[in-house]
């Protein structure tokens, strides 16, 4: 696609996109660090991570301000309009992802009870997959590739399955061994935080698809049935 006749318009759109990529990079790092803190049970490192959330929040605000400015001053059309409107949604999703990662670090920093190591490593593994999703969705965004976006969207199904198996395992552990309830409950929340990050990456994949094609991404993901056998035997 050729450039806009007005060069400053191109620059504003480039700035909005580069800010999103920058924000995505920070979120990726935040998730990575939180998982490392969890894996290493490193409370000091976890404390440091908490301080970094502000940077992500500030970038969100910058992107919002720029998007409003472009809409008010340029009246974007077609793919430009989709880029600007989707930027608002993507920035919001990235901010939520950052919050979830920060929540993981917060728990690592503050929880004193021991958490079962075997489940921690499973959660960290799921976290690695979520990190890949983030990396791939940012790549799809930079290349504006709806195909890559679809691949990312589909990969969330695996995360959801892993989450369910961790949920089941922790539930069983608590039923079998009530003194683990405290630690397991914290892990349940951590696992949920990581799983939600995957959901937001999936949202971003939908936005990319919309920017490129103008159509909403219609995919089926029905794991409702999987919840039926979650009741544990006591």
């Amino acid at each position: 696609m050729s450039d806009h006749l007005v060069e400053s318009y191109d620059k504003q759109l480039e700035l909005i996109n580069s800010n999103l990529v920058k924000m995505g990079g920070l979120v990726e790092q935040q998730v990575k660090d939180s998982l490392k803190a969890l894996d290493d049970k490193d409370t000091e490192f976890a404390e440091e991570i908490l301080k970094k959330d502000d940077k992500i929040d500030n970038l969100e605000k910058e992107i919002y301000a720029l998007a409003y400015k472009i809409i008010a001053m340029r009246q974007p059309m077609a793919n430009d309009l989709r880029t600007v409107v989707s930027a608002l949604s993507i920035a919001n999703d990235l901010e939520r992802m950052g919050d979830h990662a920060t929540n993981v670090a917060k728990r690592v920093a503050n929880v004193k009870v021991s958490m079962p190591s075997q489940s921690i490593s499973k959660i960290v593994q799921m976290g690695d997959d979520v990190q890949n999703m983030i990396k791939n969705v940012l790549d799809a965004f930079i290349k504006m590739s709806e195909k890559k976006a679809i691949t990312v969207w589909d990969s969330d199904i695996d995360i959801d399955e892993t989450y369910l198996s961790i949920y089941r395992e922790l539930l069983q552990m608590m039923a079998d061994n009530p003194e683990t309830i405290n630690g397991c409950a914290h892990l349940l929340t951590i696992a949920k935080n990581i799983e939600r990050i995957g959901d937001y990456a999936q949202n971003i994949a939908e936005d990319i698809h919309f920017i490129v094609t103008g159509e909403t991404l219609e995919r089926k993901s029905d794991n409702a049935g999987q919840w039926e056998d979650l009741d544990i035997k006591t």
Binding site: M1, S2, L5, M77, A78, G214
Partner: peptide, 19 residues
Amino acid sequence: IFSTPANDKTLDYVTGRFG
């Protein structure tokens, strides 16, 4: 025409890229 035109020339024109 103003959201998802079929032709690239139309897209360039409505988004202010024509030149």
